[in-house]
Simulated scan of single mutants.
Amino acid sequence: MSTQGPKQALFAAFAAVAKALGHAHRLKMLEQLAQGERSVEVLAQKTGLSIANASQHLQHMRRAGIVGARRDGKFVYYRLADDGVLDVLAALRRVAERNVAEVERIVRSYFDQRDSLEPVSRRELAERLRAGTVTVLDVRPEDEFALGHVPGAVNVPLRGLEARLSEFDPAKEIVAYCRGAFCILSYEAVAALRAHGFHARRLEDGFPEWRSAALPVVIGNA
């Protein structure tokens, strides 16, 4: 019987990582963990899973080296293993956008329909923040904002945006962001702001990519 060579062993290990990513619930969990560390209970609530089911998915990803964990008393908290996980997810998204017809159809019929304008790059937003020429709007829920956000960002979750429009300066462009490139929240926020006469655009991706690029981050609700 032939023994497994090093190249085949590597391919098997790579395949195990890919297999651990191969579930929509796990990708949804990774989107949440990209915002910051989360307990199993919070991840279960955010993804609509039972705690037992969420824990099972997380353990699969932990064995594959995709997430890490720590225990604090009765609770277990998970986090991304490192920012390389974000690179894998971004590559997966690009391949699917370019080569999967269903992904292209969804992007064209939903996302492009809501926002055909060019988004703001991270570099441009960083420069405009320093110049004070932009209002940055974080439309994620309050708990995600507290885990980390762009400096100077105003946290107005999408559900409360209509009630707080009077707080924004109509003379300043508003740049909205949320969890990532296809986070629906920022698309909906920009559409609502434009409908009320504001000049609004999206950030090109989201908070995880901003943090991964080593740009300034503020933790807490300040």
Rank of each mutant, 00 (worst) to 15 (best):
R123M: 13
V120F: 09
A131I: 09
E127R: 07
E102Y: 06
R108N: 08
D115W: 02
G132T: 02
A131H: 04
G132A: 06
G132R: 00
S121Q: 01
V103K: 09
L129K: 00
E102C: 02
D112I: 02
L125G: 02
R108M: 07
A126W: 12
L117H: 12
E118I: 06
S109P: 00
E124K: 01
L129E: 10
I106L: 13
S116Y: 14
D112G: 11
V100H: 13
V107F: 07
V107S: 08
S116R: 13
V107W: 06
E127H: 05
R108T: 14
E118A: 13
R130C: 01
R114Q: 12
I106K: 08
Q113P: 03
S121I: 02
R108V: 09
E102V: 11
N99S: 12
A126E: 15
G132C: 05
Y110R: 14
E127Y: 05
P119T: 00
E104C: 01
A131D: 08
V103W: 10
E118R: 11
V120Y: 09
Q113I: 08
S121T: 10
A126I: 09
E97G: 12
I106V: 15
E127V: 04
R108P: 08
R123G: 06
V120R: 04
F111I: 13
F111M: 11
S116M: 15
R98M: 02
G132M: 03
A126L: 14
V120G: 00
R105I: 07
V120H: 03
E102W: 07
L125D: 03
A126N: 12
L117P: 13
A131L: 10
E124H: 08
E124F: 05
A101P: 05
I106C: 08
R122Q: 14
S121K: 04
V107T: 09
E124Q: 14
L125R: 01
V107P: 06
L125Y: 01
R123Q: 15
E118H: 05
L129M: 10
Q113S: 10
V103H: 07
R98V: 00
G132D: 02
V107E: 15
E104V: 05
R128H: 05
V103L: 01
S121L: 00
S109W: 03
R114M: 15
E127I: 01
A131Y: 03
